[in-house]
């Protein structure tokens, strides 16, 4: 590989000669034309406001937990039984119809315990926070701010 030290490219004669080459300048009013397309309002303000907002993530986490809590506490079997009773003998017996599915769900959800709700809030909050960060990073990458 051909490696050159700076002394092999330093050349006062060539430097002086190249300096004499005509400099082509942008036309008059170039700065004004650039400034016309530059936003007058501060676009960086929005980015600053988008910092970490604990209440925002806490609200979403609480909502998420509320939905999970509803799903866990909702007794589909009892619900179907009530429906069957209200419809009388001619009603469809949903308990028998979806027996296998209901049993599977019951087994799955019985593994959740209400004592772990605080842990769930923390976990869901953390997941939401980092998920949000990842999404923003991805969106930013797609916005083509790279110049390479």
């Amino acid at each position: 590989m051909e490696k050159q030290n700076s002394e092999h490219i330093e050349d006062d004669f060539l430097r002086n000669l190249v300096k004499k080459s005509t400099t082509i300048l942008p036309s008059a009013g170039f700065t004004e034309r650039v400034m016309e397309v530059i936003p007058k309002t501060n676009p960086f303000e929005v980015a600053e406001k988008e910092g970490f907002k604990p209440w925002y993530y806490a609200a979403i986490a609480t909502g998420f937990v509320a939905v999970v809590y509803f799903i866990i506490t909702f007794d589909l079997t009892s619900f179907f039984k009530q429906v069957a009773e209200s419809e009388g003998k001619e009603g469809i017996n949903y308990v028998n119809l979806f027996g296998v599915v209901l049993n599977t769900f019951n087994k799955a959800f019985s593994n959740f315990h209400f004592t772990s709700i605080s842990l769930m809030i923390v976990i869901s909050g953390v997941i939401l926070y980092f998920g949000d960060k990842l999404l923003k990073k991805w969106a930013k990458g797609n916005a083509d701010t790279t110049f390479a």
Partner: peptide, 20 residues
């Protein structure tokens, strides 16, 4: 910090090199 008109200073300073 919000003074976008200050960008004109950067444009004036570097326009020749960027254009070159």
């Amino acid at each position: 910090n919000g003074d976008t008109s200050a960008y004109a200073g950067l444009v004036n300073k570097h326009k020749e090199m960027v254009f070159t």
